[in-house]
């Protein structure tokens, strides 16, 4: 199976504090991979490295075979990102926010409009296109961000704790939407500390204290132990 993402020997320090230590794993094409870890495990740092916002030393990130360090344009063009913190203009409409992002990716005119319409339809947000983002609830804002991340048809979707602050129905809906994207061949790396967002047949990378503590299919890695209990045992964190 070809890999949408490969991370090899990646380390990063925040000042003198180690954040990531020799992190290596891969996300195969069309798979949902959960980057599971308690708060402070290094998930957001890893996401920042994967999107080129910070540069690892040492380490290699390869997206669809393109080295992020050597060919950042080719690598970044294949990535869609949903950050943990909101990244939109509240006082502009959903459509304007998506149009801005489409243009940042080099899309304009009819192609941009078509892609925006398709992305919004995919997330059930067509009727919200003209609304200001400030008027949307948290769940719809997240859906808008996911729709936005898909506009340029990325092969890899990175989501950094995308359900933080959402109520249970919104969390379930967004988790289901993103799982469904893998059927279209999109690979997903979903950072979370909430074990109920994972399916037994998902892939899992357990990040603990900046290191990969376990990796593999959820049901294979945890065996007969319930995931929440397994997570607690391995990290000492409350799931």
């Amino acid at each position: 199976m070809t890999e949408a993402l490969r991370v090899a020997g990646l380390s990063h320090d925040w000042g003198r504090k180690p954040a990531l230590r020799d992190v290596s794993f891969a996300v195969p094409e069309g798979r949902f991979c959960a980057l599971l870890g308690p708060n402070g495990a290094g998930k957001s740092t890893l996401m920042a490295v994967l999107t080129g916002l910070i540069r690892p030393a040492p380490g290699v990130v390869s997206v669809g075979g393109h080295d992020l360090g050597r060919s950042p344009r080719a690598a970044l063009a294949r990535i869609g990102v949903v950050y943990q913190a909101p990244t939109y203009d509240l006082d502009r409409s959903v459509f304007a926010n998506l149009k801005y992002f489409a243009a940042l990716q080099g899309l304009s005119g009819a192609m941009a409009r078509d892609r925006i319409a398709a992305s919004l339809a995919r997330l059930g947000m067509e009727e919200r296109a003209g609304e200001k983002v400030a008027a949307l609830n948290g769940g719809h804002r997240r859906r808008m961000e996911i729709a936005r991340a898909l506009i340029h048809a990325p092969r890899l979707l990175l989501l950094d704790e995308p359900t933080v602050g959402l109520d249970a129905p919104a969390r379930a809906a967004i988790t289901a939407h993103v799982h469904a994207l893998t059927a279209e061949g999109i690979s997903v790396l979903w950072a979370t500390h909430l074990v109920d967002e994972l399916h037994p047949d998902d892939d899992l990378v357990l990040l603990h204290q900046g290191r990969v503590a376990a990796a593999g299919r959820v049901d294979a890695v945890t065996g007969a132990t319930p995931l929440a209990e397994w997570f607690l045992t391995r990290t000492g964190a409350a799931a």
Binding site: R73, A77, V81, P86, T87, Y88, L90, G106
Partner: peptide, 14 residues
């Protein structure tokens, strides 16, 4: 602070 800078800096341009 609003995060839109990250959006811009992760666009595939120098």
């Amino acid at each position: 602070e609003s995060g839109t800078m990250r959006l811009m800096l992760t666009a595939p341009w120098p």
